[in-house]
Simulated assay, not measured.
Amino acid sequence: MDVLELLEGAGLLAPGAAAGPDDPTVLEVWDLLAHDGWETVLTLLEEPGTNPPIPPEGWAALAAAAEQLHLAHSAAWCHWRHCEARNDLVVRAELELPPLGEGPRGTAFAGAGVMRPLWDIGDRTPDGGPNLAVAALWAEHTPTLGPGERATVRLGPLTPARWRDLRPGRRITMHEGSPVVGTATVLEVRRVFG
């Protein structure tokens, strides 16, 4: 199956009359592809305009297309969005790491969903201690994040149900083991299809 078949089969290309002003149409995509604009096509589809949210199968198709095109970062992003759609949950926060020497982290980490730290989101164990939750971290528009830096991040919870009651403005802490290595303020918690 070629890339275009994957995209059409996933229902990601709107016919001209059905497309919103910011949505790519089948004809526009064909024109881009004819001029080797594969990466542009994938980027257009990764951030849909007025079309309904892309279902998990659509994100899986986009990830497969990106992999066929050897676009590793796009493939990773589409896999991330596939998980958000499958879990029907988007969690975004503003994360700040303490400056070098003031926190336990001494090096930067990759921002593209590789790190899976623990988070104190306010849940408590029966004895009153923090019941930490695991969530992967994707730093938006930031390839790496290091001491003293801040970024808007997306969090991919291992157990999404534990995160659904968070509200914007809530402060949560990131942990690697027991020490706090970062503090985040929740910006958004929403259902993908809600």
Rank of each mutant, 00 (worst) to 15 (best):
P98G: 06
H141I: 06
T159I: 14
D2L: 08
L45A: 01
A110W: 01
V192L: 07
R81E: 10
V3S: 10
R150I: 06
G146N: 10
D23M: 14
A151V: 07
R105I: 15
V134W: 06
L118C: 08
G101K: 05
P143C: 03
H141F: 13
G49P: 14
D2A: 08
G37D: 00
G156C: 13
A61R: 02
G9C: 05
A10L: 13
L69A: 15
D23A: 10
R164P: 09
A108W: 10
H35V: 03
T50I: 04
G182D: 04
Q68P: 00
E96M: 12
P55S: 00
L118D: 07
D22A: 15
P15G: 05
A10R: 09
G20S: 11
R170Q: 15
G122Y: 10
R162W: 11
A60D: 12
T183E: 14
L4Y: 02
V186K: 01
R190P: 04
A17Q: 14
E176V: 15
V3T: 12
R105N: 09
T40R: 11
E188S: 08
E188C: 12
E176Q: 14
S74T: 10
G194Q: 03
L4A: 02
I121V: 06
P157C: 06
L27Y: 12
P53M: 05
L97F: 13
D123C: 09
L89N: 00
E67V: 00
I54W: 02
S178H: 15
A19Y: 07
H175L: 14
G128R: 12
L27C: 04
P15L: 07
T125N: 13
G194E: 01
L33D: 01
R170M: 05
G20L: 10
P160F: 06
T142W: 04
T173Y: 09
L71P: 05
V26E: 03
H73V: 15
A65S: 08
G49R: 10
E8F: 01
G148D: 00
V26C: 02
D23T: 13
A136I: 06
A139F: 13
L69H: 11
W30Y: 15
A151S: 15
L132K: 05
I54Q: 05
P179L: 02
R162C: 13
V91Q: 01
V180E: 12
